[in-house]
Design a protein around this nucleic acid. Structure first.
Length: 894
RNA sequence: AGGCACGUAGCUCAGGGGCUAGAGCGCCGCCUUGACACGGCGGAGGUCGGCGGUUCAAAUCCGCUCGUGCCUACCA
C-alpha cells in the first residue's frame, strides 16, 4: 500500500491524480455499465477449480423463480448474500458463487397459461411449428386454447428464457459477484439428471415408496400437494346440527358438522369414550338421514366432548382426522369428491354404498351429483330442512339454523379453493421415521440469526406426513419410472421400473425402459410411463448437489459439498431449507451447508407484506436508476439478517449521499501531491490507531454475519472521524509541501500517506457493500500502486496495513483534536461566520489533562481551523473531552 | 393455544448492565472554506410500551402485562 512504498522509497513522489480529469459528479449509470463489463472480462468472480477446499467459500445461491415479478425484496436478500461473498473474496477465499433459475414447476405453468391464455391437455395432438401470440382481451373471454403436452412444455421454455433475461440484467446491474459460468436452470438436462438420480438413489435404498392413499389435493390445479405447500386460512363456516338414527331403535342423536355435503360419504360416527351421553351407542350402528346408510359408532380419544355436540360423523374425507379414523378403524371408502372438485356419480344400494332405502338415497343424491362442494353444500342443507328428511321420517334432519363460526381451512398455498383429501396413487419419501436425524442436522447448521433455527425445529417436529413427491402436472422433471403391463394390459404399480443411472435424464413418456422395445408402449405385456412429474422442491432441494455435480463428478463434489452458506428468506425455511437438509441427510447423512443466513422481508411502508395481489410491490429498476446500484445495496445492507423491514426510500437517499461523499473525498485525497514519507505526525498516528480499531471491529462483525453493523461503524467513522474532522485538520499540513514549502516535505508526506491509508482502508471496508464507487476510486491510483487491479480482490484491511505506523504518543490525541476542532467550529457557528473564517486570536479553555494532550496536535488543529493566536486556560469545571472557546476575535471577511 | 421476534426522537433504525441514550431523515438557525451546496457548522427534540423484581447501578438481565408481526398447532 501507499505508506509501505513510502517507507521503502522516501522522497519519491506520491502517485497523485489530476482532479480535473475526474468527472464533477459520480455518474452511477455509466460507471455501473463500464465496471460490470470490466469484471466480466477480467473474470475476478470466477471460481478456481484447482485451489484446495479450505480456501474455497461455497455459496448455495437461491435460484429465483424467474416467472415471478421483480421487486425490491430481490435486491434486498440477494445483496445481503453478495455482501458476505465479497467480504470472503477480499479475505482471499476462492469463491464459488453460482446462479440458477428455478423455472420448473407450477409458477411457470401458471404464467404461460395466463400469458398466452392456453391450457395443457395431454390428449391433444402435437402441432409442429406452433406460433403463439399474446391474445387480445376479447380472445381471453373465450375458453383457453388447448395445447399438447410437448407444445405446452416448448412454450414454457420460450417464456422462461425471456423472464430469466430480466433477472440476469438486474443481478448484473446490482453488481452481484456471481460466477456466471456456473449458471443453471432447474429444468435443464443436468438438473433433471440430478433430480432423477436422487430418486433412483432413494429408491434403491427403500427411502421412497408409492402408495394409493388419501392425499391433499387441489381441485383447480388437479394435483397432489405436500404438507409444506399447504397453509391454513381462516374462513367463515357454520356448524350444521344433523339428526342421526340408531339402528334397530327409535333413539337418535345429533352431530355437528361444517361439511354437511359429505353426509353421503359418512362411514362412521364417533364420540369420546368417557362421554356419558354417547356411551351407550358404542358398538351399535348409526343411520344417516336422507341416505339411510348404517355406519359403525365407535369411541375415540381424539374427540373433544366440548366441541359441537360431542359426537361427530366421519367421512371420506373431510379432514386429516377423518383419514386417521378411516385408517385406524378400517372404515369403508366412499369417495365423493372427484379430482375436479365435483361430486362423482354413485349409486346407493350398490356394493360399498349400502342403504336401507336405496331409492330415496339415490333420489337425494341425484340433487348433488355433478355439483361442486359449495353448490352441494347449499343444496343438501335445503334437503335436510325438508320435513321428512329425518331418520324415521318425522320432521327435518337439520336441527335449528346453522351456527356461523370461523375456522381454519387448509389450502394449497397457491390455490383458491380448500384442499380435499383424495385417494390417489402418489410417490412419497420417508421423512417421518427420520425426524431425529433431520433435527440433528438442523442443530449442526449454524443459523444467522440463531433464533431462525426454531422455525426449522418447529416445522420438523410437527411434520405429520411423508413427503408427497409426485405432481399431476406437465412442466417439471419427470418421475423416471415405468410400470410393466400384464397380459390384459393392466399396469403392475407395485413393480415400478426405475430408469438406470446411465440413462438419465429420461422422459418415460418418450424413452423406453431397458429390456423393452418402443413398440411395446401401452401393449399387453409391455410397459407404460408414470405420467407424473416431481414436486418442484424435489429438484430445488438439490441445489448444493446440482452445483457440486453429485453423482457424476466425485472430485468436484468433494470440493464443493457441503456448501459454506445458504442465503434465503425465512418464509421458505419449511420448504427449501427443510427439503435441502432432508435430501443431504437422506443421501449422504450430511448437512447441505454449514451456515444458513436468513434474510428478512421487505414490507410496504404500512408494514404489510408486498405482494402482487395487493398491488404494493415496488419495482427495483427505477430506484436503481434514480439512486444508483450502490445506494440500493446500501439500503439492503443496512438491515440486519432476519428482521423484516418497512420499505423506506430515505435509506436509498442516504446511500446515494454516501456514495457521492466517497467519490469526492477520494478525489480530494488522491489529488494531494507529496513525497513518500512515513506516517510520523502525532495526529496522523492517532488517526491510524483509531482506524485499526475500526478494522478490527468490522472484521469481527463480518465474520459473524453482522454486515449491517460493520457498515454502520464504517459509515460513522468515515463521516465523523475522516471527512468532517481528520481530513479537515490534516489537509492544511498535507498541502504545505505542494504549495511550495520544501521544508514541510516530511510533515506533508506524513499527512498525505495517512490520508491515503485512511482512504484505502475505508474504501476496502465499504467495498462489499458499495462495489462500484469503491472500485472507481480505487482505480484512480491504488490499483496501480498496490498491484491489485480491482479492489474486490485486494486484501481485506488488517494488521499489514498498520504495522509500520508507530502508536501515538497519547491515546487521547485524536479525541482531543476533534473536541478542540468542534469547540472552535461552535464558536464560529454562534458568531454566524463561515467555517473558513480566519481567527485572529482566541482562548481555549479545557481541563488540565486535555490541554496537555492538546499540545501534541495543536498546530494541526489551529491550522485546520485557521486560528492565528491561541492562548489556553485551565478550567477545572470542564469535563474531559470538552473545550470552550472564549474571547474569539475573527478576522474581517476577506 | 404454544413459540419466536419486535416495541428507543415526528419517521426509519442503531445500542443490549456503568460515559451526559445515539445516527440519518425531517424541523429551526447559520455558513458558499482551494473535495463535495448531491455540501458544511450549530441547535431543538426521548420519563428507551407499562408494572414489578435482581443489582451499588437497568433502555440493557428476570417475571408479569399491553401492543405489533410472524411461525407452529387448532379444521368434527
Amino acid at each position: 500500500m501507499a505508506e509501505a512504498d513510502g517507507a521503502k522509497n522516501p522522497g519519491g513522489r506520491v502517485l497523485a491524480i489530476d482532479p480535473n480529469t475526474i468527472a464533477k459528479h459520480f455518474d452511477s449509470a455509466e460507471v455501473e455499465a463500464r465496471l460490470d463489463l470490466a469484471w466480466q472480462a477480467s473474470g475476478i468472480h470466477r471460481w478456481d477449480p484447482v485451489r484446495p477446499r479450505d480456501e474455497t467459500f461455497v455459496v448455495d445461491t437461491p435460484p429465483p423463480t424467474a416467472s415471478g415479478s421483480l421487486h425490491v425484496g430481490h435486491v434486498f436478500s440477494y445483496t445481503q448474500a453478495d455482501v458476505m461473498v465479497r467480504f470472503q473474496r477480499m479475505r482471499g477465499m476462492n469463491i464459488f458463487y453460482p446462479m440458477g433459475w428455478d423455472d420448473n414447476g407450477l409458477p411457470t405453468e401458471r404464467r404461460v397459461q395466463n400469458y398466452y391464455h392456453v391450457r395443457c391437455d395431454p390428449e391433444v395432438p402435437y402441432e409442429a411449428d406452433l406460433q403463439l401470440e399474446v391474445p387480445s382481451a376479447k380472445q381471453r373471454k373465450k375458453p383457453a386454447r388447448l395445447l399438447s403436452r410437448p407444445n405446452f412444455v416448448e412454450v414454457c421454455y420460450t417464456l422462461i428464457n425471456e423472464d430469466e433475461e430480466h433477472f440476469r440484467a438486474l443481478w448484473r446491474r446490482l453488481g452481484l459477484s456471481v460466477d456466471w459460468s456456473q449458471e443453471y436452470q432447474t429444468i435443464n438436462d443436468h438438473c433433471r439428471r440430478i433430480a432423477q438420480l436422487s430418486f433412483r438413489d432413494l429408491f434403491e435404498r427403500d427411502l421412497v415408496y408409492s402408495v394409493e392413499a388419501p392425499t391433499m389435493w387441489d381441485v383447480d390445479f388437479q394435483t397432489a400437494v405436500a404438507q409444506a405447500e399447504a397453509e391454513d386460512r381462516v374462513l367463515p363456516g357454520a356448524y350444521h346440527s344433523i339428526g342421526f338414527g340408531v339402528e334397530g331403535s327409535d333413539e337418535g342423536f345429533v352431530i355437528a358438522t361444517t361439511r354437511p355435503e359429505l353426509l353421503p360419504a359418512c362411514v362412521g360416527v364417533t364420540a369420546h369414550p368417557d362421554d356419558e351421553r354417547y356411551r351407550g351407542l358404542f358398538g351399535k350402528r348409526a343411520i344417516t338421514p336422507l341416505f339411510g346408510v348404517p355406519v359403525p359408532i365407535f369411541a375415540s380419544e381424539h374427540v373433544d366432548p366440548e366441541k359441537g355436540t360431542g359426537v361427530l360423523m366421519v367421512c371420506t374425507f373431510g379432514d386429516a382426522t377423518d383419514v386417521q379414523w378411516w385408517r385406524e378403524e378400517g372404515l369403508a371408502l366412499r369417495q365423493l369428491v372427484g379430482r375436479n372438485g365435483r361430486l362423482v356419480p354413485i349409486e346407493f344400494g350398490s356394493e360399498g354404498f349400502e342403504s336401507q332405502r336405496p331409492d330415496a338415497a339415490n333420489a337425494a343424491y341425484a340433487e348433488l351429483a355433478g355439483k361442486n362442494v359449495k353448490q352441494a353444500r347449499a343444496r343438501i342443507v335445503e334437503l335436510l330442512r325438508e320435513p321428512g328428511s329425518a331418520v324415521g321420517g318425522a320432521g327435518a334432519a337439520l336441527e335449528g339454523e346453522p351456527e356461523p363460526i370461523e375456522h381454519p381451512v387448509k389450502f394449497f398455498e397457491k390455490g383458491d379453493r380448500p384442499l380435499e383429501y383424495l385417494p390417489t396413487r402418489q410417490w412419497f419419501a420417508r421423512l417421518l421415521d427420520r425426524k431425529e436425524q433431520l433435527l440433528a442436522k438442523g442443530e449442526e447448521v449454524v443459523w444467522h440469526p440463531a433464533f431462525m433455527q426454531a422455525r426449522f425445529r418447529d416445522w420438523t417436529e410437527n411434520l405429520n406426513l411423508d413427503w408427497c413427491l409426485s405432481r399431476q402436472r406437465y412442466f417439471g422433471v419427470p418421475i423416471p419410472v415405468w410400470y410393466p403391463l400384464n397380459a390384459s394390459g393392466e399396469p403392475d404399480l407395485d413393480a415400478a421400473i426405475v430408469a438406470e443411472r446411465e440413462q438419465l435424464p429420461v422422459d418415460p413418456t418418450v424413452d423406453v425402459p431397458t429390456g423393452y422395445e418402443a413398440g411395446q408402449r401401452g401393449q399387453p405385456g409391455g410397459f407404460k410411463a408414470d405420467p407424473d412429474i416431481f414436486d418442484t422442491w424435489f429438484t430445488s432441494s438439490m441445489t448444493p448437489q446440482i452445483s457440486s455435480h453429485w453423482g457424476t463428478d466425485p472430485e468436484r463434489h468433494a470440493r464443493l459439498f457441503p456448501a459454506d452458506v445458504r442465503p434465503q428468506g425465512h418464509d421458505i425455511i419449511r420448504t427449501w431449507a427443510f427439503y435441502t437438509i432432508a435430501k443431504a441427510a437422506l443421501h449422504e447423512d450430511s448437512v447441505p451447508w454449514k451456515n444458513a443466513m436468513i434474510s428478512g422481508w421487505i414490507l410496504d411502508p404500512d408494514r404489510k407484506k408486498m405482494s402482487k395481489s395487493k398491488g404494493n410491490v415496488m419495482t427495483p429498476l427505477p430506484l436503481l436508476e434514480q439512486y444508483s446500484a450502490d445506494a440500493g445495496r446500501y439500503w439492503a445492507a443496512s438491515a440486519r439478517l432476519g428482521s423484516d423491514t418497512a420499505f423506506d426510500e430515505k435509506i436509498w437517499k442516504i446511500g446515494k449521499r454516501l456514495v457521492t461523499k466517497i467519490f469526492n473525498a477520494g478525489k480530494f485525497v488522491l489529488a494531494q501531491e507529496a513525497e513518500h514519507h512515513p506516517i510520523s505526525a502525532e495526529l496522523d498516528r492517532a488517526f491510524v490507531a483509531k482506524l485499526a480499531t475500526l478494522v478490527e471491529g468490522c472484521t469481527h462483525d463480518f465474520e459473524s454475519y453482522h454486515y449491517a453493523r460493520a457498515l454502520q461503524q464504517t459509515e460513522s467513522f468515515f463521516w465523523s472521524h475522516f471527512t468532517d474532522t481528520y481530513l479537515e485538520l490534516a489537509k492544511v499540513r498535507a498541502r504545505r509541501f505542494a504549495d511550495g514549502d520544501a521544508s514541510a516535505a516530511v510533515e506533508s508526506g506524513s499527512a498525505v500517506a495517512s490520508l491515503r491509508l485512511g482512504l484505502s482502508v475505508l474504501l476496502r471496508l465499504f467495498a462489499p457493500v458499495l462495489p462500484y464507487v469503491t472500485e472507481e476510486v480505487w482505480s484512480w491510483a491504488f490499483a496501480k500502486e498496490g498491484g491489485h487491479a480491482s479492489i474486490h480482490v485486494a486484501p481485506w484491511p488488517g494488521e499489514a496495513d498498520f504495522s509500520t505506523v508507530a502508536a501515538p504518543a497519547s491515546k487521547r490525541s485524536f479525541e482531543v483534536a476533534l473536541a478542540a476542532h468542534a469547540a472552535i467550529n461552535k464558536a464560529k457557528a454562534e458568531a454566524e461566520v463561515s467555517m473558513g473564517r480566519e481567527v485572529l486570536s482566541l482562548v481555549l479553555a479545557g481541563n488540565a489533562d486535555d490541554l496537555a494532550a492538546f499540545e501534541a496536535v495543536r498546530s494541526d488543529v489551529l491550522a485546520g481551523t485557521r486560528v492565528h493566536e491561541c492562548a489556553t486556560t485551565v478550567d477545572a469545571g470542564l469535563e474531559a473531552g470538552h473545550f470552550a472557546v472564549r474571547d474569539a476575535a475573527f478576522a474581517p471577511r476577506p
